[in-house]
Computed example of a mutant assay.
Amino acid sequence: MAESGRPAGASAEDEQRETSAGFAAPQKEIGVVTDMGKWKRSRAYADYVGFVLTLNESVKGKTLRCEYQVSETVDGLLGVLGTLDRWIDETPPVDQPSRFGNKAYRSWYAKLEQGAEALVAAVLPADQRAAAVEVSVYLKEAVGNATRIDYGTGHEAAFATFLCCLCKIGALKADDQLAIVFRVFNRYLALMRKLQKTYRMEPAGSQGVWGLDDFQFLPFIWGSSQLVDHPTLEPRHFVDEKVVNEHHQDYMFLECIRFINEMKTGPFAEHSNQLWNISAVPTWSKVNQGLVRMYRAECLEKFPVIQHFRFGSLLSIQPAKP
């Protein structure tokens, strides 16, 4: 549960925003590259990595259409994402000279900025609603940057952080693990793909052809775990469009490949070189282990990504216990 006292580095003004329950709007703490050591030693890092790995294990060998329970909180989160989706329809792109970064995105984002806390509070049980002031900030961070009109793995991590916080306060339970990935996170991916296509969002800090993907990383980790020990599908098969089209509704990894094929032209080996290289790995288990290592190195240990991470009472900058 939440700890009392203001987060390290918070100002008196921040402290005034803190609620009686000990929740407050989380703050940025990683200001210079040398602060990265604090991040890697923090409770937040340990909790976040633990959350990603727990879900990675829970989805192993399971399809998107397998049976699992859908709790009231999961239903509520799907409703929130549905609302954000509807707002896209109500906020069409505007005519502008620039092809990328349609400015209508800022109008869409302003609705979320104004309504996020109320949307989150409505999903939480009555005795947990005080947490909305802290948890809702991660939802606002999860959909891209309104100034640059871009989106990347740091924003994706903010959504995973949002879900992690809901687990920490008990709104989401251990029984919800499959639904967290297969329903909530998958619905979030659909929302982000619609935002990217509608407002022509730029990749945030993309490494271009040398990155794994322009926008996402986590669905490749969890999606490769789904495919571990699959009787017929091997890593070499995901570069075959026929295989992707036949199986994308069951496997998150293949749905990501399908979206890349839809958005990019030319030989796969040229526009998605890292993924092409991964297709040569002999087993999904090795793919999964390699992607976890790559995620730590290329996302969680990169200052340009982590400088935007926010810390509060639920995900603390304080050092983790040994």
Score class of each variant (00 low, 15 high):
I306F: 00
R236D: 10
W39Q: 14
D176C: 10
D35E: 07
P26V: 14
M1C: 08
N261Q: 11
T91H: 02
F303G: 09
Y199V: 14
Y199D: 08
L314P: 01
W276L: 04
Q69L: 11
G101V: 09
W210Y: 15
L53Q: 10
M36Y: 00
C167V: 15
D85V: 12
H271C: 04
G154N: 07
T91Y: 03
F215W: 03
F238D: 07
T54R: 03
K62L: 14
K321I: 14
L189S: 04
L163S: 05
A116R: 01
T34P: 00
W108D: 11
G31K: 01
R17Q: 11
G144M: 07
G50K: 08
Q289E: 13
V120Q: 01
I306K: 01
D229Q: 10
V244C: 06
Q318L: 13
Q196S: 10
Q216G: 04
L172W: 08
A122W: 00
F182L: 08
V123P: 02
F268V: 11
L189E: 02
L254E: 01
R43T: 15
Y105H: 06
S136Q: 04
Q96T: 14
Y138A: 13
L64W: 00
P282Q: 13
A131C: 05
K111G: 06
G31S: 03
D175V: 12
K103P: 13
K40Y: 00
E67R: 06
V52K: 04
